[in-house]
Design a protein around this nucleic acid. Structure first.
Lengths: 338, 338
DNA sequence: TTTTAGCACTCCTGGGATGAGAGTGCTAAT
DNA sequence: ATTAGCACTCTCATCCCAGGAGTGCTAAAA
């Protein structure tokens, strides 16, 4: 279904006006602020037809119109301009990615912070799933007299550590065990590592069985860690400044929705290419709690695993800018993590 | 200033009733629900006197009373019962501290989560200041062909990592540098380490100057990291279910207050012993944004550094239970981190 | 002297009623 | 096909009023 030129222009005006003000928009406003060259009455007629065909809604009989999900969808697919980010925004993001004395987790967290502040929406990053990751090397380091620190470096740059019991081990023994573990378990996917470790214990019949056991348990833990563990959310406070959240009930609902499994599963279930962010408007997402919010998110790759980065905002969010920001982050995250 | 026995009982009844319901409490309610053995009229007289002496307030002329800051203070100091935690609460907390396959940061984060869920208040932990910490050992590990991972283990169990440029180094070289750094910089306080590193570079006149430089820069970064970096907050969503936050403006104000330097500085500025949590009621804290909230927090020690753990709730928070929870966490955190 | 019952008074709260304002839909004129 | 004009609809803020909860005061009872 397509729209004739003038209807499209009216729709675009309604959407953009509504995105800006958050209020229902009337025919007079459009006539005044958008140079369509026709009178309010004509626009009224067009709006009536756009309503009949489902692109616009009326909150009540005698108010202005607001875009329906379908209206936003048409706008996003056909009318939305491609925006360029402001120089200072680009600068803020670039400096994030340039200073590389950081671990992956900090990078992801800071990215979330920057883009939520830049948009006033809620931002999230879903880090690469460690289960699909292989690890680069594993090290045992002395931590105290009876403890050792297990350090695991994955191929996407995650660094995971945990303290394990390792009484009476010399540094040389630790090095030996480190080498053995790296040799035998490196380049095995994390979710397969537990089995391999069992085999290793049998082969070696060694006095290090206990160490290997602890290491395997930890690796197993990493692989089976629930999705929420690698979700970083930022900008809750920003969201509160959106007028649609003057009702606290909404906010609560939303916050718990984000932490619930459902939303993450939904985001992961959508297959898409990098550089082509997914936009889900209002009730297009099957997740109830965000039925009057919109979602713009993309994916980035880190080694052979992938993560997601996105924005969650009111249905009247600024899609054009959001898409530009997400695209930028997709690209730069993928570069930084490879 | 002290109160005669009956006034104290009336005050206690008003405080406890108000904590439970959140509403102004009237004389009739107290006569009915608390067995003081006197009529509402008598209670009215007592309440009038308590109001005159500043222990109670009236929202308006003909409503029930609510405790003033002073009333809460008297309650907290003189009337509040010592509560024991429920078995299941103790269990939830104990299992947190028992499973020790965790790094410090996760432990702190999970503690925050557990106690904010248990209380429905906002919980926070301020981790030990790394500037006052010495480190245990420092290691260089191969990460990729041109990069090495710098791992620093502090004496309180923090593990900090960062990637640095280290082209063409063999494992043996890395071990050599690791040993050198640990020998020369270990047991130096983090905030003194930069100077020491400069000295080291001069002494060694070595080809590893660049590595040492990067390590020193990172250590310096740790030491000068702002206080907020080690602040973990949890339970924002819980706070929204408190009736005093049905107004979104409040919530926003509060969220930004927490992230502001001021509150943290205030908390750090109070000296106190472990096992003796500080209670700050309403306007007792000089930080404007929490002038109608209360703060209950304690301290824990980790090596020779110290951290803080606390709850931020409405002025009518359940002080008795909050104190019990904070005491418990103080003790167990100190045990776990030493 | 202390406690209590009684009662007038105050103030908040919630439910209509009202009027202004914004915007529409329709009709008739251009 | 477009536009001006106008009656109509609906929301929103305000005001008013009655109901209810609670107080303070006075006078009687313990």
């Amino acid at each position: 279904m397509t729209l004739d030129d003038r209807k499209a222009r009216v729709l675009r005006a309604v959407v953009e006006e509504h995105i800006e003000t958050g209020l229902p928009v009337g025919s007079r406003t459009i006539a005044k602020r958008y140079a369509l060259g026709v009178s309010p009455a004509t626009i009224r007629n067009e709006m009536a037809e756009l309503e009949e065909t489902g692109y616009l809604d009326k909150p009540h009989t005698s108010s202005g119109r607001i875009p329906s999900d379908r209206g936003y969808r048409f706008y996003v697919d056909e009318l939305m301009p491609q925006v360029r980010l402001h120089d200072d925004e680009v600068y803020a993001l670039e400096s994030l990615f340039r200073s590389r004395a950081k671990d992956v987790v900090s990078l992801l967290k800071e990215t979330v912070k920057v883009i939520s502040d830049a948009t006033n929406y809620l931002a999230f990053v879903l880090g690469p799933d460690s289960g699909e990751v292989t690890f680069n090397s594993i090290h045992l380091l002395p931590a105290s007299s009876r403890k050792a620190l297990l350090v695991i470096i994955t191929d996407v740059g995650y660094v995971e550590t945990c303290l394990i019991d390792a009484p009476d081990m010399t540094i040389d023994e630790m090095r030996y065990v480190s080498d053995m573990l790296t040799r035998n378990l490196g380049s095995v996917r994390l979710d397969k590592v537990a089995d391999r470790a069992q085999a290793l214990i049998r082969e070696e019949a060694s006095r290090y069985a206990e160490i290997i056991d602890q290491a395997a348990a930890f690796l197993r833990g990493l692989a089976t860690e629930p999705d929420e563990e690698r979700l970083f959310v930022g900008g809750t406070a920003n969201l509160l400044s959106q007028p649609e959240f003057r009702d606290v009930g909404r906010v609560k609902e939303l916050l718990s929705a984000i932490e619930s499994e459902g939303l993450i599963q939904y985001i992961l279930s959508n297959d898409h290419r990098e550089g082509d962010p997914i936009i889900r408007i209002g009730a297009e997402s099957p997740v109830g709690a965000i039925r009057d919010l919109s979602l713009v998110y993309g994916r980035f790759t880190a080694g052979n695993a992938e993560g997601r980065i996105g924005l969650l905002g009111p249905r009247r969010m600024d899609y054009a800018r959001s898409v530009a920001i997400i695209k930028f982050c997709e690209r730069r995250l993928s570069e930084s993590l490879s």
